[in-house]
Design a protein around this nucleic acid. Structure first.
Length: 889
RNA sequence: GCACUAGUGGCGGAACGGCAGACGCAACGGACUCAAAAUCCGUCGAGGGCAACUUCGUGAGGGUUCAAAUCCCUCCUGGUGCACCA
């Protein structure tokens, strides 16, 4: 920045201050800079007016040096003042004023009035990160704030709460790095987040604020864990887990993203550790069935179904040649059993060790196993194209149907964690087996043909289940695939060589974390009694104060170093015992927080039965797509468990689930510090106001799709609100709607009401913009029209509309008014303009009354077409009130 | 690879069987200004015509229909999720 610009900037700032105007950030002084030889210099500004000046670079008569600012000031002062007084909206004062009033009047306090109809709106509570609020946060919050405000106006008792999902790694990592207690870090972050959210004017009931790190809260998280433990759903298991080399914690499968740690991005390796597990798989069917009774967007249901991954198949036992031993496989295609030409077991399969003496190439097999173990799950699954494997020398199996001897291979494309860790390979009808067989030149037998006859299985595997017909399959030949599946399953069961089996992709939830900043697991390990639950009366089991939050290299939690805390007595036998030092994952606290909101200060229970009965289920839950298979599934699992335990009255926690799209940077990329495209909501609130930010984020595009930020778009929304503000100058004394705008008013009420409930906020706002354009066209607006507009807009822009309501003499508070009603009959024009088409191409339009008969309309249409109509009329179509189409040859 | 989702002016997006481009942004022209900003009025998919008008146009190609951006089939491209799940 040149000295000249800097001086000029200072000059404008002084002028602005003298005029009693706040000054805009320097950022905006520099946004528009060079334009040909000009510098576009935006100097001081009022709260809304950019008082700017083009200074022709190096042109003395236009360049105004600081000494001449006096003159400029005079010019500016007169004009700007006038504009501001008469027309301009000061968001600073108005927003502050109403936020204060709402707080004092406890405007959005939610009574537990069990006699009124309820509406429970929920947004995912944020993780209070050190970065503060992201511009993406307000999108879902504003959306449901709109719905909540509208529902209040419609007479519902609305619960719209907010809280903090505050346990978690980033806080702990920050604490370690900066030597501040995580508790302090959390406190600061929460304070900042709260202030930021409050500056946006949300109608959250802050009386019900919850925080997962509050002992009064996590007491109940621990209580639920004890219930799970007592029900046998929490168990400890020695198992290979995903181990993050950097965080030194075990991760749930769901937390591993592309083979690296979701949190830190470090490599994830397999490591055997004794971990707490939750048996979510016990609820797989219930979680699946429950989806039929809820109103989730299809995308979410599909994701959950795919994640649970239920498949119906059969387990089949293959006899190992010359032994009693049987090799059990799981298959979804038992119908293709006649085509099984070899078997594959996973490198970790116990059969290998059991028969080590008989496997002639044992060393080669072990070498292969070690190679596979080095690979992370990511590599093992990623190298899809290039199959690897070793044939077991000295061991074969017998196909139970064909009784032929087939080889057994070891390959890492078979996973020990799914099914039985062994498969029968049918290369003719499975893509993976086909690739493997091609590579190792293994035989293929076609047992299914298409409806058109045989297909060439040398080209690709034939996997069409719908049209396939069995061939070369003994007693199955001639059947359809579905028939064959049934028949072979029955056969297997009859001969006791196999049985029906349902399998799931879903795995149990790894619940342990070797971390400090989480809920302590309320278990005591006794040498005599094993893992014993502590007594409920001892809850909450407080997180002890520690010096160091550093994870230990041996994978123990930092809590392990606290010997005073660790050493205790067994609640069962009274002997010496040690406390569990692992903590719970962040997902624990967020799995039930919506229950606590219903009765957040209850000390006797996680919430009173009355409150739960009244408020549940959550009527509308909005959150990110990224939580569909983690948080959303976990919390449904906990809820279903609590339902079985008769703690909660509903089997599903959320009646309706919607998802919002991401807000991307101005360049269309994800916002991130490294890309330098982060927008801070504080800046937008300061420069344009909370109402503008809210309006903009709702107007930015379809709610469920991602959208790119645009500062010009923000200005457009600001302009809209200012036009609403300035409408006061056109206000007429008349009540009610003027005749010529009556239809438009009813249409707008209908559209906005519908759109707010259907996530179409962008078109709702567009409709209101169109409405005020009508007022401006007429150059007047009646009181009735204006008040309806303000009411419709209030959920989106609560501050400015409340102020205008007061200015224009509205009684009481706007947010307490009832939602405008429309009459269906009045949403339609008496006369409509319809298109007249010839052969589907629009030629002209005609105006008709909507009740006019088809013949009359057609006659009118033909008259309007005049000479354009030629040839023989074949057909005449009239869609009432829509279109006339004349088909002519 | 599989699943889901999307592809429409200079841009964000409307319309989701019935007049494509609502609404907003940007741009351009005009009014007001010494000037600029702000504001207000106007133009704004492409081609052709002095004009009234006309032809073409919703990723590509086919199809269904009186009528397709919208429904069906094949393909291309982007986004998201999952990933050798037998």
């Amino acid at each position: 920045m040149s000295l000249f610009i800097r001086k000029a900037l200072r000059g404008w700032k002084i002028i602005a201050e003298r005029m009693g105007l706040s000054c805009m950030s320097e950022k905006y002084n520099l946004t528009k800079t060079w334009k040909g030889s000009k510098i576009t210099f935006i100097g001081a500004m009022s709260d809304s007016v950019f008082v700017s000046m083009y200074i022709r670079h190096r042109t003395p008569n236009i360049y105004v040096p600081p000494g001449y600012w006096g003159k400029a000031e005079l010019l500016q002062r007169k004009k700007v003042r006038r504009t501001i007084m008469a027309e301009m909206y000061n968001h600073h004062t108005v927003e502050k004023k109403w936020q204060k009033i709402w707080e004092e009047e406890k405007a959005f306090h939610t009574p537990n009035d069990f006699t009124k109809p309820k509406f429970y709106a929920l947004v995912e509570f944020p993780y209070p990160s050190g970065q503060g609020l992201h511009v993406g946060h307000p999108r879902p919050y504003t959306a449901l704030d709109i719905v909540a405000r509208k529902r209040r106006m419609q007479g519902y008792n609305v619960l719209y709460p907010m809280g903090w999902d505050a346990f978690g790694l980033p806080t702990e990592n920050y604490a370690i790095k900066n030597k501040i207690h995580p508790k302090e870090v959390t406190k600061n972050n929460v304070a900042r987040f709260k202030a930021q959210l409050q500056s946006l004017g949300y109608s959250f009931d802050w009386d019900r604020e919850v925080n997962t790190t509050d002992p009064e809260y996590y007491k109940w998280t621990q209580w639920i864990f004890l219930k799970l433990f007592k029900a046998g759903l929490a168990y400890k298991k020695e198992m290979p887990i995903n181990w993050c080399t950097s965080c030194k914690v075990g991760l749930a499968n769901e937390e591993v993203v592309n083979g690296v740690c979701e949190r830190c991005g470090s490599e994830v390796v397999r490591k055997v550790k004794n971990e707490w597990m939750l048996k979510i798989t016990n609820y797989a069917d219930k979680l699946l069935e429950g989806l039929n009774d809820v109103d989730y967007i299809e995308r979410v249901k599909t994701s959950q179904r795919n994640w649970i991954g239920r498949s119906e198949g059969a387990e089949v036992d293959f006899v190992i040649s010359g032994k009693e031993e049987k090799l059990r496989v799981y298959t979804t295609r038992p119908d293709t059993l006649f085509g099984a030409t070899y078997m594959v077991i996973s490198p970790e399969h116990p059969l290998i060790d059991k028969y080590k003496d008989e496997i002639k190439n044992y060393d080669a097999v072990i070498e292969y196993r070690e190679m596979a173990a080095k690979k992370s799950d990511f590599e093992r699954t990623e190298l899809a194209k290039d199959k690897t494997g070793v044939e077991i020398d000295g061991m074969t199996a017998i196909n139970p149907l064909t009784e032929t001897e087939i080889p057994i291979w070891v390959s890492d494309y078979v996973l020990m964690t799914y099914g039985t860790g062994a498969i029968m390979a049918v290369p003719a009808h499975d893509d993976r087996d086909w690739e493997f067989a091609k590579k190792f030149k293994l035989p293929m037998i076609q047992v299914v043909e298409g409806s058109e006859g045989p297909v060439d299985i040398n080209e690709a595997a034939f996997t069409d289940v719908a049209t396939g017909k069995m061939i070369n399959s003994g007693f199955l030949t001639g059947l359809s695939v579905e028939e064959a599946k049934e028949k072979v399953k029955a056969f297997l069961e009859e001969k006791k060589i196999g049985h029906r089996k349902v399998n799931y992709k879903l795995r149990d939830w790894v619940f342990s974390r070797q971390r400090y900043w989480g809920e302590p697991i309320p278990i005591v390990n006794c040498e005599k009694c094993g893992a014993v639950a502590i007594d409920e009366s001892e809850l909450p089991l407080l997180l002890p104060e520690v010096e160091s939050y550093m994870p230990t290299d041996n994978g123990e939690s930092p809590l392990a170093a606290m010997t005073d805390w660790v050493n205790t007595t067994c609640p069962c036998c009274g002997g010496p015992a040690k406390r569990e030092t692992d903590t719970m994952p962040q997902w624990a606290g967020s799995s039930w927080y919506f229950l606590r909101y219903t009765d957040p200060h209850n000390t006797e229970a996680l919430a009173s039965p009355e409150a739960l009965k009244y408020w549940l289920p959550v009527d509308w839950y909005n959150g990110g797509m990224e939580h569909t298979t983690l948080h959303l599934l976990y919390s449904r699992f906990w809820h279903k468990f609590l339902y079985d335990e008769k703690v909660v009255p509903t089997s599903e926690p959320y009646q309706k689930r919607t998802s919002h799209g991401m807000i991307l940077g101005e360049n269309g990329e994800k916002m991130s510090k490294s890309r330098g495209n982060v927008v801070n909501p504080d800046d937008i609130v300061r420069d344009y106001g909370a109402d503008t930010l809210r309006t903009y984020e709702m107007f930015i595009g379809a709610f469920d799709l991602s959208a790119s930020w645009s500062e010009d778009g923000v200005k457009g929304c600001r302009r809209f609100l200012e036009r609403v503000w300035k409408l006061q100058t056109l206000l007429k004394d008349e009540e009610g709607y003027s005749k010529d705008l009556e239809v438009k008013m009813h249409q707008t009420i209908k559209k906005v009401s519908y759109d707010f409930e259907n996530l179409k906020f962008n078109t709702a706002i567009a409709a209101m913009m169109a409405l005020i354009n009508e007022f401006y066209k007429k150059n007047e607006v009646t009181k009735g029209e204006y008040r309806t507009l303000l009411t419709l807009l209030n959920p989106v822009a609560p501050h400015i509309t409340e102020e205008l309501w007061e200015i224009t003499g509205g009684t009481g508070r706007l947010f307490l008014q009832s939602w405008p009603e429309y009459e269906e009959a009045k949403t339609e024009e008496a006369t409509v303009e319809i298109a007249v088409q010839i052969n589907g191409k629009t030629k002209t339009t005609i105006a008709i009354r909507k009740e006019e008969e088809k013949d009359a309309v057609l006659a009118k249409a033909k008259e309007a077409l005049g000479g354009k109509l030629s040839g023989n009329i074949v057909k005449e179509i009239y869609v009432p009130g829509r279109i006339v189409n004349i088909v002519a040859k």
